[in-house]
Structure formats: structure tokens, C-alpha cells
């Protein structure tokens, strides 16, 4: 297997400074937010790679950079060997972008309420001059709706059905990679199961690769082959699914797995984690997790740990064994 997506040293910085007049009056310096810092990982073809992390960890920013909605500040993203932001051959860029589609969290906000479902689904094809005749009907049946639904408007569907329409739209361009940003967070449990099953079926049928962005560890554990854990914009651990859940190395990963509510955890008393995610504009020195870490040492405060190989995992912690 080869890597379909290769991300190297990806960094994205947002300028969150006040307007210049306010800065002048209040003597404030410019402020920058490092949403993503020096993240590197590969996604193998025909696998599901999951990014997990709490809010503000930069997981959605990485997703947006991969589909080309945001430009990286530094580093590179190669999809099938093509770097979208450096490639000069227009035809190559077109072909690569066509092969990457996205499914968003909120199926209510991501469908145009004034368009018929047919137009929504064939849009990615027709925008590139393709022929969408009969395509919407075929895709709707593939995602478990009926061909007659093509003439309806989005408001006639429930949340789960809308997410199926979003999936049909993503499939229309015959992509290789689909970036799913919290695809089921807005859905109920029984509908979530339907959508997750559909995603697995389609992966087998079309040989798709998914980047699954989620905060829900149970979904990630259910779906993913390989998992990257983000904290404050940095990749702090990466491992195959079983290795990560059976033997997490980083204290943050351990805390996340421990804190997630478990269905069989009747009357479980969890020692609640201390502290909260720090301010990303002024992150702590050294390892960003050290203020909350139960095993932090002086070295963690001063020096930032780099990712290193440890068994099957890659982990950014001095003390991980």
C-alpha cells in the first residue's frame, strides 16, 4: 500500500490581532494563533485515518487545508504526489481537487435550501463540465434513498437523510479521498449507526480513503484504522487503532480514553482530569500538556518533546515508555 496523502510539517497561523488603531492606543502587540504546528502524517490508500482532539486542537483546520479551503502557512500536503499549493500544472490541480471531497458536520447548513436535491448532487460534476444525466438518481439509491427524492428540496428530509444526500454529493465526483468533519455529531444514535454503516459499505464498494475528524472516541475506535491525537495544534500521538486503545503512551491520550463515558461503566468513579485546554495564543512553554500532566517534570516545562517511535506508536512525550 502507498500513501495517498502525505502531510509534512504542516503549520497554519492565524492573525488574530486587534485592528491597528486599537493596538496603537492600547499598546498591544500583534497576536498570532498557531492553529496547527508542524504536523506530519501519512494516510494510506483505502484506509480510514482519524484525527481526534478536543475543541481548539486544530483538527478541522487540517481537514480544511487538505481539501484546499485554507492555505498552509508552512509545510506541504501532497495528495497522490501533487501539492495543491505548489503545483503549476493546472490540469493536475484540477484532477487532484476533483478527487477530494468533504462531508460536513451540520447537514442542515451544508445543503442549499433553494436547490433541488438533483441539482445539489450533480453540481460537483457539472461545475467541471461533466454530464450529470441520471447520476443523482443512481447515487441516491446507492446511499439508501429513492430515485424519486431527486426532485425534492432539502427541507423535506430528516437530519440522517440529509447527511445521506451530502454523502451522495461527495460521491458524485468519484473521489479517492473524502474528508469527514464530525459527520455524525449532529445525528441521533440510531441514525448515526445508519450513516456509519453506509460509510463503511461505500468504502468497500468504491475503495475510498477517509479522513475522519471527530471528538468522539467510540466512533473513532469503531471506524478508524489509524489514529492521530492532536493537542493544541500538535500531533502528540499516532498509532494503529488497537495499539492506541490497548496501549496509549501519551498521558493526554490516556486521559482522553479514561474520561470518555463508557456504556459498561456502571457507577464508575473517574478521577476527573484537572485543568482545561490552555489559551492557544499564549501556549505553555515546553510540552503544551505539562500544566495538566500528572507526571510532568522540569524538563517538560522547558523543552518541547518531538515525536519519536515507540513500539507501534509515535509519541511526543519524554516520559512515555
Amino acid at each position: 500500500m502507498s500513501a495517498l496523502v502525505s502531510i509534512k510539517n504542516l503549520t497554519r497561523i492565524f492573525d488574530v490581532s486587534l485592528p491597528w488603531l486599537n493596538r496603537l492606543i492600547e499598546h498591544q502587540p500583534k497576536a498570532f494563533l498557531h492553529a496547527v504546528s508542524e504536523v506530519s502524517f501519512d494516510i494510506e490508500e483505502n484506509t480510514i485515518y482519524a484525527l481526534v482532539g478536543e475543541s481548539g486542537s486544530g483538527k478541522s483546520t487540517i481537514g480544511k487545508i487538505i481539501v484546499g479551503l485554507l492555505a498552509p502557512s508552512e509545510g506541504s500536503v501532497e495528495i497522490g504526489g501533487v501539492d495543491l499549493f505548489r503545483e503549476s500544472d493546472k490540469a493536475k490541480i484540477e484532477a487532484t481537487r476533483n478527487g477530494v471531497q468533504m462531508i460536513f458536520q451540520d447537514p442542515y447548513a451544508s445543503l442549499n435550501p433553494r436547490w433541488r436535491v438533483r441539482d445539489i448532487i450533480v453540481e460537483p460534476v457539472e461545475a467541471r463540465g461533466g454530464d450529470g444525466e441520471g447520476l443523482a438518481e443512481r447515487l441516491l439509491e446507492q446511499v439508501g434513498l429513492s430515485a424519486a427524492d431527486a426532485a425534492k428540496y432539502p427541507h423535506e428530509f430528516s437530519g440522517g437523510q440529509r447527511q445521506r444526500i451530502c454523502i451522495a454529493r461527495a460521491l458524485a465526483a468519484e473521489p479517492k479521498l473524502i474528508v469527514c468533519d464530525e459527520p455524525t455529531s449532529a445525528l441521533d444514535v440510531s441514525v448515526q449507526a445508519q450513516v456509519l454503516n453506509l460509510m463503511s459499505d461505500l468504502q468497500e464498494e468504491f475503495g475510498l480513503t477517509y479522513l475522519l475528524i471527530s471528538h468522539d472516541l467510540t466512533i473513532v475506535q469503531h471506524m478508524a484504522d489509524r489514529i492521530g491525537v492532536l493537542y493544541l495544534g500538535r500531533l502528540i500521538e499516532e498509532a494503529p487503532r488497537d495499539a492506541l486503545f490497548s496501549n496509549p503512551k501519551h498521558p493526554y491520550t490516556k486521559m482522553l480514553i479514561d474520561a470518555a463515558p463508557r456504556l459498561d461503566g456502571f457507577g464508575r468513579e473517574v478521577e476527573p482530569p484537572t485543568g482545561e485546554i490552555p489559551d492557544p495564543i499564549n501556549p505553555p512553554t515546553g510540552c503544551a500538556y505539562h500544566p495538566r500532566c500528572p507526571i510532568a517534570t522540569e524538563r517538560c516545562k522547558a523543552e518541547r518533546p518531538q515525536l519519536r517511535e515507540l513500539d507501534e506508536n509515535r509519541v511526543a512525550c519524554f516520559l512515555a515508555v
Binding site: 471528538h215 482522553l256 474520561a259 470518555a260 463515558p261 468513579e269 476527573p272 482545561e276
Partner: peptide, 11 residues
């Protein structure tokens, strides 16, 4: 978030 959720539930 998950870690904060665990804190609130314990509370």
C-alpha cells in the same frame, strides 16, 4: 469537551 464533561459529571 470530553475532559470537561468528566469533570462536570463527577461534580
Amino acid at each position: 469537551d470530553v475532559s470537561v464533561q468528566a469533570q462536570i459529571i463527577a461534580l
